[in-house]
Nucleic acid binder design. Structure first.
Lengths: 243, 243
DNA sequence: CGAGACTTTGACCGTAGTCAATTTATGTGG
DNA sequence: CCACATAAATTGACTACGGTCAAAGTCTCG
């Protein structure tokens, strides 16, 4: 159920960041082959690459995932959230390397970029451009996340992240106005923002009390987004004017 | 003086990360043209791209620089340090965008990648590979930095960063064993590690007192690197085995 | 209903921030 | 080479943000 509510619908994928915006032009047979090769993961599941390969590329079709690293110690840092349409790369875990990986947060559907079903559309220049843009935006988000973690206070971090997620979800049709579904536990939030679970809880309480957001049933509403943007020093992402 | 001590020497640039490792095979005339087109910056200077262009690519020849962002508020976050041999990209500042940029920490020598003097060697596959590797390593360092800021304590952050800098400096011949020159003010350290100036000062005092490092006259010595690596959860970078 | 995951709260502690002053380089002109 | 100006490092006193520990309350789901 919850997987469905996080999927890109047939038209939702047409957003600027949707890597599959060219899909409507495919023949039915290709579409069938495509859906047959979709891989599914349960929450907590880790995207692994095939035994022989040392790298796997793919795209999120539905659901939320995150890229993260776990210290030998148990501490965890989440680098990015992956939403439908986002491309990803995972490398085979090597001994003596930091254990980084992509794990599913909700039920997840992904497709391997090496899949023959995707080869057919890989060459379309519209897809190539979409992927190019996605990579560029991801780079920018990494730096945003660094500022968040390094220089913002706890309430600023939370609001800044919510603003980013809203923009990204709206771009793929999963947010209506200032309201969207947020399928994250507070623990995940904590690991993304470099805070403790308990402190995240208190910070949410605070930003709710202060009238910045509403939050019920995993659904968030940002109250007065303009004010929040100024407050958390958030700038929306570029849309597509890049060279 | 201090610029010289941070330069890559003719042989120092031969390290794995040195983008100019193929330079020894150039003709004298090309080398002359090359050095004539080197740009210089004083500490605090910002690398700007030409008035018309919206992007500038280049490589650090000597000195230290950093990529950073300043919040409207004055708070600053440093993303990466750039050392001799490191490629960089700066974009023209756009209104309403976060003000990110590259600024010189020490006197700096850089060369524009669009320079004709560099065109001659651009096509060499050894250079292309070096740049490829440099970009890959940089990506990895960004994530390392995120873990540092998000999940490590102040002493861990300091030691982790020093370990990284040592490895990178050694790769370009600017560190002998566990000792190297560190031309950073504590304020820069603070802005890189997401801490306050005062706290950085106290943390340095502590790691010195605890026998983890020696620090005199801007020169650091790491005492027992193995122990520090375990303590700060540091993994050295990949050298060159990537596909 | 019971088990387990997630959220919420309280009490307390410790790391790190702020403010302000002092000391120590570093540098510059005379 | 010295006097002064400025940047950088250092220290103290105090505050506060965020972490830890522990318990209780909610929510799901079999």
């Amino acid at each position: 159920m919850s997987a469905v509510s996080h999927s890109v619908g047939p038209s939702a994928a047409m957003g600027p960041a949707g890597a599959f915006s060219a899909m409507h032009a495919l023949r039915a047979e290709q579409v069938r082959a495509f859906w047959q090769s979709v891989e599914r993961l349960e929450p907590g599941g880790r995207i692994a690459c095939a035994p022989k390969c040392d790298v796997k590329r793919g795209v999120i079709l539905s659901g939320w995932a995150c890229e993260m690293q776990i210290l030998p110690d148990g501490r965890r840092q989440i680098f990015t959230f992956l939403l439908p349409g986002d491309p990803f790369v995972v490398e085979a875990p090597k001994p003596d390397r930091p254990s980084r990986g992509v794990i599913a947060i909700t039920p997840l559907q992904i497709i391997d970029a090496a899949n023959p079903a995707i080869e057919a559309i890989r060459s379309r220049e519209s897809l190539a451009r979409a992927i190019e843009l996605a990579i560029q935006q991801k780079e920018a988000r990494l730096l945003d996340h660094m500022v968040r973690i390094g220089r913002l206070s706890a309430p600023e971090r939370v609001l800044h992240l919510l603003l980013e997620l809203r923009d990204r979800l709206e771009a793929i049709g999963l947010a209506k106005g200032d309201t969207f579904r947020l399928p994250l536990t507070q623990e995940v939030f904590a690991d993304a923002l470099g805070l403790s679970l308990v402190h995240i809880n208190r910070t949410f309480k605070q930003v709710r009390r202060d009238g910045y957001i509403e939050l019920k049933c995993k659904t968030v509403t940002l109250l007065n987004r303009e004010r929040l943007r100024a407050l958390a020093f958030y700038s929306p992402p570029l849309t597509s004017d890049a060279a």
